[in-house]
């Protein structure tokens, strides 16, 4: 199975994936990335304050395949 890397950014903190994850294909990797983003948002948003989250999916060569971003701005 191909290897994908999932790099996350949370507000200003960049969290690079050092190990990667073997998944069936890019469609699965995208689905997993979106699910993870939603799960992290569900945990982080109730902690209060602004939240910016992004996930970037890279292939085994570290070429970017997909990016998703999420912003939460309570007023």
């Amino acid at each position: 199975m191909p290897l994908f890397y999932f790099d996350f950014t949370q507000n200003d903190v960049v969290n690079d994936d050092t190990t990667g994850q073997e998944l069936a294909d890019l469609a699965t990797a995208k689905r997993e990335a979106v699910k993870a983003l939603a799960e992290i948002a569900a945990e982080e948003i109730p902690r209060d304050g602004k939240l910016f989250l992004s996930v970037t999916v890279c292939d085994h060569r570290r070429d970017i395949c997909f990016t998703a971003k999420l912003t939460f701005e309570p007023s």
């Binding site: 999932f6 996350f8 994936d17 190990t19 994850q21 997993e32 699910k35 993870a36 992290i40």
Partner: peptide, 21 residues
């Protein structure tokens, strides 16, 4: 495997991997 772990924890494989890290 991480898939087993994510099926135990009810989180996506990617979130599981991130949590373990």
């Amino acid at each position: 495997t991480q898939t087993d772990l994510s099926d135990i924890l009810g989180t996506s494989v990617v979130h599981t991997n991130r949590t373990l890290q």
